[in-house]
Every structure is written in structure tokens, then in C-alpha cells.
Design a protein around this nucleic acid. Structure first.
Lengths: 217, 217
DNA sequence: GGTTTTTTTGAACAAGCGTTCAATTATATT
DNA sequence: AATATAATTGAACGCTTGTTCAAAAAAACC
């Protein structure tokens, strides 16, 4: 039954197998909709090992984020540093927006963690996410860095204006990342977020125009 | 124990009490995170009555949508008809965008159904929502009507462009509706979607500018 | 006022849940 | 080779899950 256990040279550790299975199932069915036994089955592992390695089901949930999220955060940080080198405000802004969106699109097409983007889009939409504090812990710091970068471009804008602009970028991106076929269904296939390049090409000017004009007055 | 059972003249029926309790709990904990016993307790009702009236837990979940959603859909339809009377393209577009956003904001501040907006923002973010088909059944028709209205304003835009513009409006709105304090937390209270008027005042120009410029070229 | 239908009760059902643990096997250390 | 540590097994724990159902109460009907 074990199937793909010791296939290639680089074999997965037990923890990794559990994390991969958990990522996939949590992304599809959520924290409550996934049972530890489902995860254990998919990982080809005994149920007890989940508690042995991760303490609890929620511990495993948290572990998925702490192992996967740093990749996105680091990519964003690099993009932000590159943006800081650009003098032209318009181009600088575009680089900042790209620093936010591109790591997310990358993750979607990356082999090992294509499910994590769904999970990540899902988590902050859950009211109980606030209690867990995962998003606050992992993503608030980089979010504040991004907002600081935006403030440098817009010294005349108020805090609220900058924050709302930021939220608009995140909002559009998150919405598209968490789409499960409705966009394609409604448009008869004309618009499809599965295509990463196309999505960026369309979304970028939409977002740029939205946030670049002076909001009030 | 029963508490607020036969208080005022207009007393709630058993079904209504179950629906209200379900709406609230589903909004906060999701379909899987809510148990029928929690709902029964909150509604001050026997567990069996949920299956008696709604067949199953998912039947109740579905019933919450079919009883609450038509209000939003109808408000949008009315807003769309009003927009059709406006000749100026810019103002027409603004009325269409308002027809999308305002019913959602209204629902948030309405007494009986303030939790439904959270539930509604949550449902399409669940991958299994596609299997349930609730969103497709209830909201696809009005969505297509809105897109048709947009096409009338933009006869030169491609299907994909119009659909992406529509998705951007919905995306920003949904993101803000499903926020659970992060926007306020990050901005130190400067930006807070709890304030409906303020939210519309800020979001409207952001979205308008985003979709009004010609996307490609 | 008696009869039929609807609603409510209270309890039970089997199945699944997350977690624990002693016993066993494998790996690393000395 | 003997010992100590880590990983895995297999089964059990108590509890909650959604659903069912016969019996009792209430409401509607003729």
C-alpha cells in the first residue's frame, strides 16, 4: 500500500510527508473539515505520529505555515529592496506592487507548495484566525514594511489613505488567489487566474490605476 | 432557561430561531466548525428539529443562504436598473459599482442579518463551495447581469477585460467584508471597514480609477 | 368534540473525532 | 557489542459528531 515511499534518492522524512499531506488537505477542507486520520492516511503514517511530532492538530496546522510562509515573506522582502533602488515614483510603485503579488503567483506554480497559496488565502478569512494569530505573527511585519515603502512614495497622503491603498492591493490579490473556478466559469474561460502571466499583466495596471490617483478631493 | 422565547408581540417561529442561530454560528465557525448541537442550544430547540425542518446540517446551511441572499440580489438588481437610466458613462459606472457594494454594506449594518455578510464573504473562499453550488445558483445570474451592464458602457473592451474589471470590484469588496480586524490592527485604527460610509467613500474612487482607465495598451 | 396532521420531546444509534500510551523496532552513541 | 535515544506501531481512551425514531403533546381540521 505504501506506494511512493522510498522512490528517488532524496526521500522525504516522516515530518515532511505529514506536512505535505496536511498542507493539501487543510487547503481543500480547512482546519475543521480535515481529520488527523485523513492526514495520516495520505502521508502513509500512523495517526499517533502527528501528535508525536506536532503536539496537536492545530500544532500541525501552525507548522504548515511556519515552514512554508517564510519563502513568500523573504521573496517580498527582496522585491521591496529592489524597489527601493528605483528613483522614479511610478516605477517604484509598480515594483512594490509586484513585490506583493509575484511571490504569491510564484508559489501557486511551484511544485511542492501549490496548495499553500490556497491555504494562505483561506486562513485570514476565518474569524477564528484572529485567535490563532498566525497571520499577525508571520505577515504583519512584512505588511508594515510594505506600508512604510508606500509612505515614502506618498509623503502627502494620510495614514488611512496609504493603508486603504495597501488593503486594495492585498484584497484583489487574495481574492484572485482564492478563486475556485468562478472567474473562469462566469467569463466562459475568457478570464482565468490559473494563467499566472496573464493574471499579472491584467491585474497590475488595474491595481496601479486604482491606487495611483489621489484618493480624496 | 428558555429566556427570550415569547417576549414581544412578534414571536419568532422555530424555523426562524434555528436559521438565526445557524447564520451566526456558521458565519463565525464555518460549516465544519459548527455542530448541530451548538445551533440547537443557541436556538433553544431540540437537536432533532434541525433534521426535521431542514433535512440535514447542510440543508440548513443552504437554507440560510436561500432565505437571506435574495435581499442582496434584489437590491443589486434595483441599483442596476437605476444605473441604466443614467446617460453619462462615468456616473453610470459609479452607480453600477455602488449597486454591487452598497447592498453588501447595508446588510452588514442591518439588524437581523449582520452575520450573513460574513458568511457570504466566506462561502466562495471554500474550495468545496463549488460542489455545493450555492454561490453559482444564487449569485451567478445577477453577476452576469452586472457584467452585461458593464459591457454596455465599454463596447470596445474584450470579454476578458470586462470580466477582470468586474472581478476586481467584487474582490476588493469581498476582502473588506471578510476582514476580521487586520485592517484596523495594521493601521492602528486609521483605516477601519466597520465604518460603512467611510469605507464606501474610500473604496469607491479606488475601484473607479482602477477599472476606468483602458487596461491594455 | 373527535380525528387527523403537525410539531416537539427525549433518547438512542453507529461512526468518527483528537489524543494518549505502553510496547516494539530502528537508529545513534559509547 | 552494549547501551541510550529516537521513531514507529497498534490499540485503546473518552467524547462528540450527524442522524433517526417511537412516543407524547399541540394545532388544525371537519
Amino acid at each position: 500500500m505504501s506506494g511512493a515511499r522510498k522512490r528517488s534518492g532524496a526521500e522525504e522524512s516522516t515530518q515532511e510527508r505529514i506536512l505535505n499531506a496536511a498542507e493539501q488537505l487543510f487547503a481543500y477542507s480547512g482546519l475543521d473539515g480535515t481529520s488527523v486520520r485523513q492526514i495520516a492516511d495520505k502521508a502513509d503514517v500512523q495517526v499517533g505520529l502527528i501528535n508525536y511530532y506536532f503536539g496537536s492538530k492545530e500544532g500541525l496546522y501552525r507548522a504548515v505555515f511556519t515552514t512554508r510562509a517564510p519563502v513568500v515573506v523573504e521573496e517580498r522582502r527582496i522585491g521591496l529592496r529592489m524597489a527601493a533602488l528605483e528613483k522614479d515614483p511610478h516605477r517604484r510603485l509598480e515594483l512594490i506592487v509586484k513585490a506583493i503579488i509575484v511571490p504569491m503567483l510564484n508559489m501557486r506554480s511551484r511544485d511542492g507548495s501549490n496548495h499553500f497559496s490556497q491555504l494562505l488565502a483561506r486562513e485570514p478569512r476565518d474569524p477564528r484566525s484572529v485567535e490563532r494569530g498566525i497571520i499577525a505573527e508571520i505577515f504583519d511585519p512584512i505588511a508594515l514594511e510594505i506600508i512604510e515603502s508606500l509612505k515614502e512614495i506618498w509623503p502627502d497622503r494620510s495614514d488611512a489613505e496609504v493603508h486603504w491603498a495597501y488593503q486594495m492591493i492585498i484584497g484583489v490579490m487574495m481574492y484572485i488567489m482564492s478563486d475556485h473556478g468562478r472567474i473562469s466559469r462566469l467569463s466562459g474561460g475568457a478570464a482565468d487566474p490559473k494563467n499566472a502571466d496573464e493574471t499579472l499583466r491584467i491585474i497590475l495596471p488595474l491595481v496601479m490605476q486604482g491606487i495611483e490617483g489621489k484618493p480624496t478631493g
